[in-house]
């Protein structure tokens, strides 16, 4: 846990110097490249297949070679996807963005405040709060979700967007990350100086701490967004009517219908699956500087 003292964006310096001499021998290098290339093919071919499949019509999908194109029907598939059941797919997309976007934004703000409080103030019960945060990593999701469903149905929240948004606000892992980032970026001296200048605690938090925590905050937001976007058990449990579903639940449902009612939704499912990757991919590529550090940080907990 002490491995994370440095700010996460610094990279080890030695990487900028020279490659590991292990790569110096030609044969060795070739062996490494072949191994890594094979692994890359394994990683990429399912995605390639998905892209190819979403450009095919029904006959192409069932009869042509799966790994190569056969006709270009991507626009037809998209049109069919967006108009099926009065554009329910677009509704699910909007829902996914709403839950992941708003929920993660709120959760990130709360987490930054909590992490700052835990990292920079010594109040009674602080260790207990932190113990709760870390302990909750071990709680199985079913143990939380089922009673939450019952409690939410008591107060009429089941099957409303709130049933997704409220649980997203409280994210112990975000708090943990926020605490680590605060420790790495906010010096005590700076806070002291601001206090001597007469700044109030709230003002210090909003105009100094939050600004210095943009990198950390972005990472926390990104990881929370990805988590909510990928969530399955919670939305499956608390969202009943299809108007409130997320993309995941909608695709799961379609993937099952293919079997039940004789309707062939295969190409809808595949095109929808491809589209649901796009926001993730854009977000991860655009913010790769942040999430890489987040992934490693998360691992060192």
């Amino acid at each position: 846990m002490t491995l994370i003292e440095e700010p996460a964006k610094t990279r080890p310096v030695r990487r900028l110097t020279e490659p590991d001499p292990a790569a110096r021998s030609r044969g060795g290098q070739r062996f490494l490249l072949v191994g890594l290339s094979l692994a890359s093919v394994y990683s990429l071919f399912p995605v390639w297949w998905l892209i190819v499949a979403s450009t095919k019509d029904r006959t192409g999908l069932y009869q042509s070679n799966g790994l190569w194109f056969s006709g270009w029907h991507l626009w037809d598939n998209l049109h069919q996807l967006f108009t099926y059941e009065h554009g329910i797919f677009l509704r699910w997309t909007a829902n996914s963005f709403l839950y992941a976007g708003v929920g993660s934004l709120g959760g990130t703000l709360l987490a930054l405040a909590t992490g700052y409080g835990l990292a920079r103030f010594d109040f009674p019960g602080r260790n207990l709060v932190f113990a709760c945060v870390v302990g909750s990593f071990l709680i199985p999701i079913a143990l939380l979700t089922l009673p939450l469903y019952l409690l939410f149905s008591e107060i009429g929240l089941v099957d409303t967007p709130w049933a997704m948004l409220i649980p997203c606000l409280i994210n112990p892992f975000s708090v943990y990350l926020a605490k680590v980032y605060t420790e790495a970026t906010i010096p005590f001296e700076l806070l002291e100086a601001a206090r001597i200048d007469g700044a109030g605690e709230l003002r210090i938090f909003f105009s100094i701490v939050l600004r210095m925590m943009t990198t950390g905050g972005a990472t926390v937001f990104l990881l929370a967004f990805v988590n909510t976007w990928n969530a399955f058990f919670l939305p499956l449990t608390v969202l009943r009517g299809e108007n409130n579903w997320t993309l995941n639940i909608g695709l799961y449902n379609w993937s099952g219908k293919r079997l039940e009612s004789g309707v062939d939704l295969t190409s809808l499912v595949l095109t929808g699956a491809l589209l649901s990757i796009v926001p993730m991919a854009i977000m991860m590529v655009a913010m790769r500087r942040y999430w890489r550090s987040g992934v490693t940080l998360g691992a060192l907990k």
Binding site: T114, G117, F121, P124
Partner: peptide, 18 residues
Amino acid sequence: WKGAAFTVPFQLGFVFLY
């Protein structure tokens, strides 16, 4: 206590959601 106040919203949420 002001520092503790930063963590109060989370603590309340934790009590209700965990």
